[in-house]
């Protein structure tokens, strides 16, 4: 479904990604973890070309993102993305947030878009909030709406960029519950997250990054179950996070 092939990225002279390669198959739930500044967020943003790459290529469902002929907006409309800071459109009601892109990008009728949007809103348990504005909701609720917004577009894959990092601890659970539900339904997901509980519970593959490189790319069972076989950097990371 997603083929990341030897990609590299620079900000000026600073190399943020070095020769990253991995494959995500349909139905995979991939957790990307690693220390801050290791390039996780940058990597996930390159998948739908929000961050351009200077070397290598990414193929999403048969479409290359670096091909000049690729219609990037069209590609992005099929890839759902959830951001650390939710990024709901603050000037629009929840319903409008859910329907805007369906109408303007996918060309759905208003009725159809509302029907689809409200169904997704119901799915994240927030039907009652449909007429409110994003600023009137809690962080956890906003993030669930953001997930519903992405799902309304009927994406083939969902990207999560630290979806719980900006939340109060009490609200992390409600967002993770939605994500777990999605994973169980067979949604293909790529998640940058520090939630190791989530990784252990639902992921089938873990990518560990450090200093812009993919250091580990293995099954969840290998990653958590067999720390001795891991690289020194991953071992250190695991020893720090697993003791609590």
């Amino acid at each position: 479904m997603i083929d990341i092939k030897n990609i590299s990225k620079w900000y000026g002279n600073f190399r943020v990604l070095t020769d990253c390669t991995t494959t995500i198959n349909k139905g995979d739930v991939v957790v990307v973890c690693g220390p801050s500044g290791s390039g996780k967020s940058t990597l996930i943003k390159t998948v739908n070309a929000l961050e351009p790459i200077q070397q290598g290529d990414i193929v999403v469902d048969g479409t290359s993102i670096s091909d000049k002929k690729t219609n990037l907006p069209k590609l992005r409309s099929r890839v759902g993305m959830v951001f650390q800071h939710f990024e709901l459109f603050p000037h629009l009601s929840i319903t409008d947030n859910l329907t805007l892109a369906q109408i303007k990008v996918l060309g759905r009728s208003k009725d159809e878009a509302i029907k689809r949007g409200l169904k997704m809103l119901d799915r994240v348990g927030l039907s009652a909030q449909k007429d409110k504005f994003p600023g009137q909701l809690s962080g956890g609720q906003q993030q669930r709406v953001a997930i519903a917004r992405a799902l309304s577009m009927d994406p083939i894959v969902m990207l999560f960029d630290e979806p719980t990092s900006a939340l109060d601890p009490e609200m992390v659970g409600e967002v993770l519950d939605v994500m777990v539900g999605l994973a169980h339904e067979g949604m293909t997901m790529m998640c940058v997250t520090h939630e190791m509980g989530f990784a252990k519970r639902v992921s089938n593959k873990v990518i560990f990054m450090d200093a812009g490189k993919i250091v580990e790319d293995c099954s969840k069972d290998d990653f958590f179950g067999n720390p001795e076989a891991r690289s020194p950097r991953a071992k250190e990371f695991l020893s720090k996070i697993l003791q609590h």
């Binding site: 943003k45 739908n48 929000l50 907006p73 069209k74 992005r76 409309s77 099929r78 890839v79 759902g80 993305m81 951001f83 800071h85 990024e87 709901l88 459109f89 805007l100 892109a101 303007k104 990008v105 996918l106 917004r149 992405a150 577009m153």
Partner: peptide, 14 residues
């Protein structure tokens, strides 16, 4: 915020 632009692009807007 820059994130709003990302969010717009991410749902497929030109």
């Amino acid at each position: 915020p820059r994130g709003q632009v990302y969010a717009g692009y991410a749902v497929g807007m030109t």
